[in-house]
Design a protein around this nucleic acid. Structure first.
Lengths: 130, 130
DNA sequence: CTTGACCTTCCATCTACTGGAAGGACCATG
DNA sequence: CATGGTCCTTCCAGTAGATGGAAGGTCAAG
């Protein structure tokens, strides 16, 4: 299978697939003409990576998850640890963003948003102790 | 004022301050020995940038906000537009992360997390239609 | 006079791609 | 057989926002 077809099947741009090969996530075969020749297992892996990335796992997470995926004897605890750690990070990021949103939406509500120069948003950025 | 002192006052690493000069956010003076010589207004700006960055504004946002900050005749609507746009982005990011968190926490709850190889997390990554 | 803390510049690295140029390969049509 | 269009290849550069480190100049204290 050539990269274009794989791209459609896995839902990833060709550039991204080549990049994943560069960093060693997949190792497709090569045809005599130099074209990459993807096996079903490559496509399967790429789809796996795509889903993991969509859930916000880093590339390194993906590498580890793929290794565990390949390992029939893996302990589910190992996978869970990665997912749990990632989940914690997401939760803390959500909390951070919520705090930011609260501050910002407060400021936006306070700002007249008209032609006058008075602006509580700039005031806050100027004076608020970090 | 030298960069070290400014660093402490503005709460930004020296590297970051030099970077902000590189990209033209600030333009400190220079002493005869080549050291950067920061005015109060530079420190003030840096603190402003630090706060805006902490609220997740991009560098380009910061550039625009600084320009508006310097402009005594600005309309508060201009500032509000930037903040409002940023707020929308944050809200959409929060929504994305919450969806991811829900999926992930569901998976983590389902996973036994013991020594057995069965793992619903990998199953999902393998089979779930993106 | 030396030590150590500062300061300088420059170059490389990080994440996860993405864009584009230059050129080879393949297939259908005239 | 030439031509055009679409695919494929590699390589280089750039994105955001810093950060790390090397090599070297400066300054103040003891």
């Amino acid at each position: 299978m050539n990269i274009g077809e794989v791209s459609k099947m896995a839902g990833l741009p060709p550039k991204t697939i080549r990049y994943y090969e560069d960093i060693g996530l997949i190792t497709p075969l090569r045809d005599t003409n130099g074209y990459r020749s993807f096996r079903d297992s490559d496509v399967h892996k790429l789809a796996f990576i795509g889903r993991a990335r969509a859930l916000g796992f880093t590339i390194e997470d993906c590498r580890n998850l793929l290794a565990l995926w390949d390992d029939q004897d893996r302990a589910s605890a190992d996978v869970r640890a990665i997912a749990q750690e990632h989940l914690s990070q997401i939760e803390s990021k959500i909390a951070d963003l919520q705090a930011i949103r609260d501050t910002l939406s407060h400021l936006v509500r306070e700002c007249a948003g008209d032609g006058r120069p008075d602006c509580p948003i700039l005031d806050k950025l100027e004076k608020f102790p970090t």
